[in-house]
Deep mutational scan, measured.
Amino acid sequence: NKFNKEMRNAYWEILLLPNLNEQQKRAFIRSLYDDPSQSANLLAEAKKLNDAQA
């Protein structure tokens, strides 16, 4: 399933972002589970926040 693969990839990438705190990571991951079809958008948002907090 395409969404499962995308979601899994986004999950691990979000977990490994160094500048997000645990609460932020949990919020993004919760959103991933709520709507896996938004994986790419959520990952992009997480990366943007990660860069902003660098």
Rank of each mutant, 00 (worst) to 15 (best):
Q38K: 15
K2W: 06
E45Y: 13
E6W: 01
N4S: 03
R26H: 06
E45P: 00
L17Y: 07
P36W: 06
E6V: 01
K47R: 08
N50W: 01
R30S: 14
R26K: 07
L49E: 09
P36R: 05
N41R: 11
R8D: 09
N19M: 06
S39G: 09
L15M: 07
A52T: 09
A46L: 03
N4A: 02
Q53V: 15
N50L: 01
E22N: 07
D35Q: 14
L16T: 14
R30T: 10
W12H: 15
A44M: 13
P36G: 08
P36Y: 05
A44H: 06
N1P: 03
Y33D: 02
N21V: 06
L32N: 01
L42V: 13
S39A: 04
E13L: 07
A44W: 13
F3A: 04
N4M: 03
A40G: 08
K2M: 09
R30L: 05
L32W: 03
K48T: 12
L32I: 06
L16V: 06
Q38T: 05
Y11E: 15
Q24N: 10
R30F: 10
E22G: 12
A54H: 13
K25N: 00
P18E: 07
Y11R: 15
L15Q: 14
L32V: 08
P18L: 05
N50V: 02
M7T: 08
Q24S: 05
F28G: 00
L42P: 02
L17E: 01
N41L: 10
A52H: 10
I29E: 02
A46I: 02
S39T: 09
E45W: 14
A46T: 02
A40S: 10
A27Q: 14
K2N: 14
N1A: 02
N19I: 04
R8L: 14
S37D: 13
D51F: 12
K47E: 04
W12I: 05
S39M: 14
W12E: 15
N41H: 11
A27L: 07
L49H: 09
N41D: 13
L42H: 14
L17F: 13
Y33M: 13
D35N: 10
N50F: 01
S37T: 11
L17W: 03
D34T: 06
R8H: 05
Q53P: 07
L17G: 00
K2E: 15
I14S: 00
A54L: 07
A44D: 14
K2P: 03
I14Q: 00
L42N: 05
L20M: 05
A44P: 01
K25T: 05
P18G: 10
N4F: 06
F3K: 02
E13Q: 11
A52S: 14
K2H: 15
K48Y: 10
